[in-house]
Amino acid sequence: MNLNLTRRRFIKGVIASGAAATTTGVWVAANGAARPAGAVERMIRININGQVRTVDVAPQETLASTLRYKLGLTGTKLGCNRGECGACTVLVDDVSTYACSVLTHSVKNGRIETVEGLESADGTLHPVQQAFIEELAPQCGYCTPGQIMAAVGLLRENPNPTREEARQGLSGNICRCGSYDSYLDGVMRAAQIG
């Protein structure tokens, strides 16, 4: 998890758009229904899961909000909406990123991947998804898409991690059910499946 990078991007983006996301108004900032004067171009084309999508994005809108509420990609979950839990983890140019803590405009030129994009057109699951099923890694499942995207990002960078490296790689993703052991089993199996 490149947390510092995404937080820095987020803050810079907020400053640029003249908006501020407060704790209490976090949904407001995220949904960005308002149209601040002097805002950047709202209609953008963004590459998500290999498809270029055209979407109306407010200047202060987070990527999580765009994905969930504009594009209907509800696989990306919001647990805290403030960079604590990792449930919203997606890949931006192969780097696992908290989608709640990055502005959509700041990654509009990037290649974004969500959990919905992992499955092949013929229904074949990604090795991480398949391994997570075989190990029954999810419990409640709410953190699972984030865990999967973090695991996919890790395995692209390090296809054969040690268990300790996998632990480090997924350490930015909280699981309140405590299924960490099973998630690590899943990552190690996924590395074997390749």
Binding site: E119, F132, G141, T144
Partner: peptide
């Protein structure tokens, strides 16, 4: 329901 959990297809209330 596990397939839905790993593909993101399963729906929670806010989805």
């Amino acid at each position: 329901d596990v397939n839905g959990k790993v593909t993101g297809r399963i729906k929670y209330a806010e989805d």
